[in-house]
Write a protein that binds this DNA or RNA. Structure first.
Lengths: 144, 144
DNA sequence: CGATTTAAAGACAAAATTATCTTTAATTAG
DNA sequence: CTAATTAAAGATAATTTTGTCTTTAAATCG
């Protein structure tokens, strides 16, 4: 469904949202270990996530690290896809046709459109926070 | 969602299923042109699709080419994913966790599971033929 | 200020995917 | 049998994705 980079990005963001609820910041090391991702590759992904400062925030130096503001935590999970430049997955034709649409549909369009609607709905309506609290509750896990 | 190779495979299979309804065979050139895919890459994909002879069939020489038997046409569209070794997409965790399951779910599991069920249902219940006839009817298109 | 800690940035490398090209093998028509 | 046609197979190349390493910049603490 998504690239490895985006999978790591989703895991990282949800993890940070959970852990930094008390204004704590998380180091790259903590994040990479927690979500089971290669450290240097994760560094690059974190740069994308912090790029515009609207999603993940960061500060350098001692006691620095990554964190999410209260507002950021309330953002829909699609924000992560946007930061990774992978939102298009939620709109793409299942057969990869550029012109596929309601007016000019591919053979699978009328069936696939229902799956895609559900997928988009999920990413638009559920917030980062909502997934983060589930880890707190101990009902779900984010590491292999 | 799927790799380019699998997108081409789905387009090719549906296209062949439509065109060869009167025992006609389609050359690689016809297929590549029709589905707007690079010819040599399509050749490789066709080899995967004909591999076990259960999905796409082929014969060499003059008037040779690719075709689908009546039985093949009735197969569910997931057969194409299987031939391409990409069925796992329909089962994979949205966050890329290997251990994610009902018993040990990732944070997005309980939401994503509904999307995945719809997706699996689509690929299991709809046959190649069902998509092919839509092209015949002129209601859908398979080329950019 | 100077040392330490942390992320940012950029160069580099490996692996996977996508795409191309050439040769071989099978089939048919004459 | 020979020539023509077509897919099969395999070698090669380009691109993208994934992953690593090194240097730089910022922040904090003494």
């Amino acid at each position: 469904m998504f690239s490895k980079a985006t999978e790591y990005a989703l895991r990282a963001t949800i993890f940070i949202a959970q852990k930094c609820e008390d204004d704590r910041k998380l180091s790259l090391d903590e994040i990479a270990t927690a979500i089971d991702s290669p450290r240097p590759f994760t560094a690059k992904i974190m740069q994308l996530l912090t790029k515009d400062g609207m999603l993940v925030s960061s500060t350098r130096g001692p006691n620095g690290g990554f964190y999410l503001t209260k507002t950021a935590r309330k953002q829909p999970i699609i924000s992560v896809l946007k930061a990774m430049g992978e939102e298009s997955v939620l709109d793409k034709c299942v057969l990869g046709l550029k012109m596929c649409s309601e007016i000019k549909p591919c053979p699978m369009h009328s069936e696939y459109v229902h799956v895609r609607r559900k997928l988009k709905e999920l990413f638009h309506t559920k917030s980062i926070e909502e997934f983060a609290v589930l880890i707190d509750d101990g009902v779900v896990f984010i590491r292999n």
